[in-house]
Amino acid sequence: MSKLLAVCARELRSLLVSPIAAVCVAMFLLVTGYLFYTIVIAASVQTRMMLRMQQMAPQLNINEMILAPSLRNFSVILLLIVPLLTMRLIAEERKQKTSELLLTSPVTVAQLILGKYLAVLALYGVMLGLTLYMPLLLGRFGPVVWWPVFSGYLGLFLVGAVFLAVGLLASALTENQMIAAIISFSLLIVMWLLGWVGAVTADTQTGPLLTYLSLLEHLNNFLAGLIDTKDVVYLLGLIAVSLFLAHRVVESQRWR
C-alpha cells in the first residue's frame, strides 16, 4: 500500500508540474465556463418567451434547463481532454526508460497501474470539483434541487473515470504519447457514438444493445437524479476491464 501511494504521489507531482495538465485543466474550466454561460443565457431567453406566451411557467426548472444540459456537454469536453491527461502515464516511463527502475523494483504491476490511475483520478476529481461553482451560483438566484446535482456529478465523475481508465490502457500500449492520445481518442469516440448508432438502428435487434453500451445513455439516468445500480456496475465494470487489460499489457511487454 505504501508503494502504491509512493507511485501515486510521484505521478501526481509529475502531473502538477507538467504544463500539459495545467493547460488541460485551464482549458476545461474555460470551455465549461463558456458553455455554462451560453446555456444560462439561452435558458433565460427561453424562460422569458414562455412567460410572455403562457403567462406562467409550469415546467421551468433550473436543474433540467441548465444543470443537466451543462453536465451532459461537459462529458463531451472530457472526451477530448482526458486522452491528453492520460497519454503520458505509462508511455513516458517507457520512453524515459524509468520503466526499468519500476520493473526491477519490488513493486507489482497492479500497484503501479492503480497508483497511476488514482493520481490521475485525483487530478480529475479536483478539476471537476472546480466546476461546482455553477450549481452554487445558481443556488443563490433560484431554487436548485440538490439531489440531481449530486447524482449528476457522481455520474459525470464515473464517466470521466471510465475515460481515464481507457486512456491509461492506451498509454500502456505504446511508448509514443501522441499515439497513446490518438488511440484513446478513437476508443472514447467509438464509445460515444454507440448511443448514436443505437438510436438510428433502434428498431433492429442490435439497436437497444448498442444504446445500452453507450456511456452517455448511462449518464442520462444520473443527470435525471437516478442512481441505478446497473449504471454504476456498468461504469465500474468498464473501469475494471480497462485497468485489467492495462495490467496484462504491461506484464506482457516484459516478454518481448
Binding site: 510521484r10 507531482r13 509529475s14 508540474v17 507538467s18 524515459q96 526508460k97 524509468t98 520503466s99 526499468e100 527502475l101 519500476l102
Partner: peptide, 8 residues
C-alpha cells in the same frame, strides 16, 4: 540508460 525523472 539512467532511469531518472528530470522534473524531480
Amino acid at each position: 540508460t539512467l532511469p531518472l525523472y528530470p522534473e524531480m
